[in-house]
Structures are given as structure tokens and as C-alpha cells.
Design a protein around this nucleic acid. Structure first.
Lengths: 243, 243
DNA sequence: TTGTTCGACTTGTTGGAACAAGTTGCTTGA
DNA sequence: TCAAGCAACTTGTTCCAACAAGTCGAACAA
């Protein structure tokens, strides 16, 4: 199959990209340089944008995209006993970032995925804690936690937005200590709403981390789903042999 | 900021999408239905394609995209002592899939990221084992392993493509047992080459897993990078408290 | 010196047209 | 019956044109 003109132009531009942050030639110059129409050049450029290689916004020169990722240590997260502050915030601070946190606590009816993870019937009334986390005043991730009724019922602590200063975390303080976790990771493109709320550049995927926490009796006590802009974060795990 | 016509059309189409696998109206019908030009309708459709919501190929009706993910259990991977076969292949088989494996062993000069992970100077001659893994004759992931010279030097076993049947894996058999691992996960859009090799649909990100394995003396003995089509895989970890 | 305005430059949006090329099913001929 | 081939679909590629709208620096006025 022969290469189409827009593919050819995309390839030539891609191979001539400079350092991150450096400007691209204007559309008009690319039209001259490659002898293609403006539409064709634009098709090539939007392909590069969808690949996450360049930025563009109206009136401004296109530039080579630059990325900086923050590490999120998943194995230490809520496993550490000195979990008196926000473990995530501490991680970011340790890397020189300024973390921030919006928390919203609400009652919802469990959607299918939540119900499955918590092993309860779909539609059950449960509590959700929806967090929007920021780094350096840039939105970073949407982190939603869900708790089954037997954990939250008759426990006002869960309606308290400041869970800081609770040693071992909210669950340990209410007698539902987590001893096992099952994490899954995947990625997909964001919906329009997600892209807008996280101020994501086109061509940036969403990295999705979900965690189900189990207590000593192997009951699920928490389900957390974090949706992160993949160009701003790197999730890490430390493992070792048990023996 | 007012909604543009192509955004409006994209939104209306998005909201009217049916079941996975169901067909979309043709471009001509969408032109009639929304009173926009074909260019505008196509811009809306390619936005939806970039979001990973629909498929399209020449001559064929566009359809709502359907996805099926395979789980890859990272905590069990090479930690298990009964690692006599290929642990990844076993995982896939357990889920009803047919795994396959192309292995290529070659000598390369360490690129920057590999050198950093293995703590050796960039450009050092090292051994690479490049794998292309398939599930049901569909390409799934590119998995490349790199070993530092002190591990491979004078050890012909590493040039043997069939590492099956080596209890505990290749490294254990040569006296460099891994006891600690550091994993990182992130996502980005694939390059044109990656998209082609993995036969990835547009709007599909690459999920990238990297693992550095350390021996008992805390020396890095292996660096592995796996690039996976994110719509076909889900990475998982099982964690527990040590006490 | 400072602030505003304006013009030239950038990319974004939307329309139109024509032809290329892949797919699918029906018709037709062997 | 079966295969080839054609017709009518589909999406893909490529051009042209015009105007909208954001950006940025230089010129100008206070």
C-alpha cells in the first residue's frame, strides 16, 4: 500500500521535529515546503497532535510537546504505618511539587463496576468520596473512593472531610483495617468531560488505576478508581520475594 | 466559548451511539440529519475515532468499538517458583486465550533509558531479548529485556532462545537471582511504527510497563519494557501487609 | 515610560467539489 | 450450482476558497 500524501508529510515533519518546546514552521511554510494543500498539511499536523507529539492552539505557533511526569508509589500508598498525612501529597512534595486536594463526599447508588468490586447489588446506596488532586495548580487526577454500607453505616467519621491525622487511615480507625489489595491498571482516551476537567492536551491518554481493598475477613471494604493524565504521572510499584 | 458545529455534531453522535458493534449512520445521512457539510461531519467522526469510541475503515460502515481486555498479573510474574513454562502464556491460557511468542536475541549498544536503569554507561554493548507476544493470533505487546554485561558475559545460556524449562527463570539458573523489583507504569500514544506492529486501532493508547530486577546485592540484573495495546490488556497487582 | 491600538501573522472553522478505493450483495453467465 | 463481475453503496484523499478568531510585536499616543 502506497503512502498517502498526508502520511508522507506527517512523516517528514515528525522526523524534522526539534527539541521539546521548539516551534514548528507555520502551515503556510509547510504548504510551500511539501507542495501539499493546506488541508493536507493540517491533516498531517493533527495526526501528530493525536500522537501527542506537538501542541497547537489558535493564533499561536505549534510547538514540540514537552512532558514532565510525577511518580506515584503504589506499594507504599496506605501500606505505610506513618500514614498520618496524605501519602499522595507527601510523595509529590518529596519530588518538589505543590499538591492540592478537592474532596467531595456524597451518597450515590452503586453503578455496575462499583457494585461488582464491592460485591454488593447494583443500585445499593453507598458513600462516595470524589477527589480532584492538583500539582502546582495543574489538575492531575480524579480519584474516587467507594465504601460498602457495612463499613459506613452508623459511622459519622466518614462524613468528615478532614481525614488527616487519622493514623493508618480512615478504615483502620473505624475497625476495618485493610490487609490485602488488588490493583488493576489500564489506559484509554478520555471522554470530552474528563479531558476538560483535567485540562488534558489532545493526544494524551488517561491512565486508570483501580484498587480494591480487603479486610482480614477478605471482605471488600473500599474501591478506589483514579483517572490520571498520563503525560503528567508515572505509577510505580516496589516488589520483593517474601522469603 | 460557544460550541462549534463539529463539536456539536460530535456530541450528538456520541450520545446516540448504540451497543458495541452496532453500525453508525453513513456520512451522507449524518450530513442530512445535522445539516453540516461532509468536512464537518468527518471532523466530528474523526474526533470520536481519536477518543477510541468508533472504528472506521474504507468502504465499510463505521461501528461502535468493542473491547475485550486480558489480565496480566504482575505480582505473580517471575515471583512464582513454579515458573517452568512462560508465566505470561499460562496467564493467558487460564483466561481462555491462545498465546504465542516471537523471540529475537541481539546485541545492542545501551540507549540512555536502558543505561540508566542498569546503572551502566550509555553505549555499553549489552544483550537484548525482544519479544512480540500474540493472543489468538492478534499482536498484543512488545516486551524487550536487557541484561548488563556482568550477567551475560561468558554465559552461553543467554543465547538460547528456549528458556522454557529453566526453573525460576534464566537469571536464577545463572546465579543472578532477582529478589527485588521496581515497576513503573505509564501510557502514551503509539508511534506510527508501534501502531503498525501491534495493529492498533486509532484512538488506542499504549500502556507501558517497565521493570528493573535487582539481585541479592542490589545490583540491577534485568531491565524489561513492555509496550501493550491498552484496549487489549489490563495489568494487575496483588499486595498485602507484610506483618 | 507606559499603555493602547492596530496590523500582520498565526491557527480554527466551514463550506464546496471531484475522484479514488474498499465492501457488499445482486445479477448474470458459464 | 457456482463463480465472475458489475452496480451501488461505503469511507478515504485531495484540492480550493473564505472568513473567524487568537497572538504578538511594533508603532503610536498619553
Amino acid at each position: 500500500m502506497p503512502e498517502t500524501l498526508q502520511e508522507r508529510v506527517a512523516r517528514l515533519i515528525r522526523d524534522s521535529l526539534g527539541e521539546p518546546g521548539s516551534p514548528l514552521p507555520s502551515e503556510a511554510e509547510l504548504v510551500d515546503r511539501y507542495g501539499a494543500s493546506r488541508n493536507t498539511v493540517r491533516a498531517a499536523l493533527s495526526a501528530l497532535e493525536a500522537e501527542g507529539l506537538i501542541t497547537s492552539s489558535q493564533g499561536r505557533t505549534r510547538r514540540v510537546r514537552e512532558i514532565r511526569r510525577w511518580e506515584w508509589k503504589m506499594a507504599e500508598w496506605e501500606k505505610a504505618h506513618n500514614n498520618d498525612g496524605d501519602a499522595w501529597a507527601n510523595t509529590i512534595k518529596a519530588q518538589g511539587g505543590k499538591p492540592r486536594n478537592d474532596l467531595q463526599i456524597l451518597s450515590i447508588q452503586a453503578p455496575a463496576d462499583v457494585a461488582k468490586a464491592l460485591q454488593i447489588p447494583a443500585g445499593t446506596a453507598i458513600q462516595a468520596r470524589n477527589r480532584l488532586r492538583w500539582v502546582n495548580d495543574e489538575p492531575h487526577q480524579l480519584s474516587d473512593s467507594y465504601f460498602p454500607p457495612f463499613v459506613t453505616d452508623g459511622n459519622d467519621l466518614f462524613w468528615n472531610p478532614s481525614d488527616l491525622g487519622v493514623p493508618g487511615g480512615l478504615l483502620a480507625a473505624t475497625g476495618h483495617k485493610q490487609v490485602r489489595w488488588h490493583d488493576t491498571l489500564t489506559a484509554r482516551m478520555p471522554s470530552a468531560d474528563e479531558a476538560q476537567r483535567l485540562m488534558m492536551a489532545p493526544g494524551t491518554p488517561l491512565l486508570i488505576h483501580s484498587r480494591v481493598g480487603y479486610d482480614t475477613e477478605a471482605r471488600p471494604v473500599r474501591y478506589m478508581v483514579s483517572r490520571m493524565a498520563a503525560d503528567r504521572v508515572e505509577v510505580s510499584y516496589d516488589l520483593n520475594t517474601d522469603d
